[in-house]
Design a protein around this nucleic acid. Structure first.
Length: 406
RNA sequence: GCUGGAGUCGUCUAGUGGCAAUGACAAGAGACUGUAAAUCUCUCGGCUUCGGCCUUCGUAGGUUCGAGUCCUACCUCCAGCA
């Protein structure tokens, strides 16, 4: 389905956006979803440990799948034979496919990739096979997968990349975007461009303007939250990109993130997020809970640290703050017969106690991971729902400050 | 009763004269941001001013500079024979 974006309301004080993404198929079928939105990640055509019904119950909009992984297994031809990704994985909501661009970054370790102008040479982690992914190939695969939104094949450079490297990388990513656009043939699929440029204002601006010139159905901000990038740099990357993106197109911040990042980046004009963290944390026994904490202290919120800086703005831009969470593996929950969060409306919190989940996680039972994944995904989606309400009422800044103090 | 074998960290286990002692599991904790991630890291006898100190391999003696390792006795368990 093709996507368009409707900006419905901008928060008066911050400029945070409330809007809608509208998906329309060739035969006129329509689906609408509100933004800000969080997309659960289903890399291998499944949100790990969840059935489509369970994902649906968290009230998501779009979900994400990955070109690189599906190319390797089972192969786009099989997905096409199955009738496309929606049918294959039994998901009738919209799907966005990442291009494999992130794997250009994540498989960099152990020298399993080599970037050239033509494309990227990978060494398959599955069997050592030599692979070559190009912008054209990525788009062709995504066309065959028949996702609703395809992403341009970009290079996601490491946080350590210097300006000179980034400049070359951006230029190449622009050429790749253009090449991908040329071969994009699926009329029932939208194509998004990706802005790069690290934390540098001039590079982000340049990348954004040039990407917009090429003309896409939506725009993503990429190359963020890699390695140990400081939050400050992430927020800068967003701040320096969004002013140059068209108001009537949706903006997607790739790979983010933590609750605090969602709030900070909605403030800076982002509409859509995705992140593996809620499901990965869940599989490792962690549940998200409301608020943020100091990186050094699980239970200290920013309001407890007034002496460290002169204002909230400075504090949360520091790298020292993270999402608040509890680790259900911890022995302290063995006899805790209360839900993860009293006021959470998710299936897990409505029906199960911390003691039970603790038990399941200790026994390495799959259902424990499922219950925590449901809670964590619903947690982030609930956060976006609250942000929508706040924006509609022009109270986003108030909402944000309350969140940071919690 | 006789003969043989065995007793080491919560459990199983390595160890044949230099050892606070191997590995696995269990346990305790931490990391995770477009998923090579149901993975990875750390701790796991006690104390510590982090340099060490103390106490440990069934029990009690002995040999030795030095013993979980060798010797003696005892205790417990297992197997075979009575």
């Amino acid at each position: 389905m093709k996507v368009t974006y409707q900006l419905i309301h901008k928060d008066k004080k911050t400029g945070a956006r409330y809007g809608k993404v509208v998906f329309e198929s060739e035969n006129g079928e329509k689906q609408e979803y509100e933004t800000p939105m969080f997309m659960p990640v289903g890399t291998q055509a499944t949100v790990k440990t969840l059935s489509p019904e369970q994902v649906k119950a968290t009230n998501p909009g779009i979900i994400l799948a990955n070109t690189y992984h599906l190319w390797l297994r089972p192969g786009e031809k099989i997905v096409k034979k199955a009738g496309g990704l929606h049918k294959f994985m039994n998901w009738n909501g919209p799907i966005l496919t990442d291009s494999g661009g992130y794997q250009v970054f994540s498989l960099a370790h152990n020298k399993k990739k080599d970037i050239t102008e033509e494309g990227v040479h990978f060494k398959s982690e599955l069997n050592g096979e030599k692979l070559f992914l190009t912008p054209e190939k990525s788009i062709e695969i995504q066309n065959a997968l028949d996702s609703d939104i395809a992403m341009s094949f970009d290079e996601c450079p490491p946080a350590t990349a210097d300006k000179k490297y980034l400049k070359n990388s951006i230029e190449r990513t622009l050429r790749w975007a253009e090449r991908g656009k040329k071969v994009h043939k699926n009329k029932n699929q939208s194509l998004f461009g990706i802005v790069q440029g690290g934390p540098y204002e001039d590079l982000r601006k340049w990348s954004a303007i040039e990407t917009v010139k090429l003309g896409f159905d939506g725009y993503a901000v990429g190359g963020v939250a890699n390695d140990d990038e400081e939050k400050d740099d992430m927020y800068k990357a967003v701040e320096y990109s969004t002013p140059y993106l068209p108001e009537d197109k949706v903006r997607y911040l790739m790979g983010v993130g933590e609750p605090v990042d969602l709030v900070e980046c909605v403030k800076r004009g982002i509409d859509i997020f995705d992140c593996v963290s809620p499901t990965r944390l869940a599989r490792h026994g962690n549940a998200l809970i409301w608020g943020i904490r100091s990186i050094n202290d699980k239970n200290t919120s920013i309001s407890d640290l007034k002496n460290s800086t002169d204002g909230i703005e400075k504090s949360i831009d520091a790298k020292n703050y993270k999402e608040k969470r509890i680790n259900l593996k911890n022995a302290q929950f063995a006899e805790d017969f209360t839900p993860i969060e009293d006021d959470c409306d998710c299936y897990t919190c409505q029906n199960y106690t911390k003691a039970y989940i603790h038990h399941l996680i200790k026994c390495d039972e799959a259902f424990g991971k499922t219950l925590l994944s449901i809670h964590n995904i619903r947690f982030l989606i609930r956060l976006t729902e609250k942000m929508r309400e706040a924006i509609k009422n022009d109270k986003f800044e108030e909402f944000r400050e309350n969140f940071l103090k919690s």
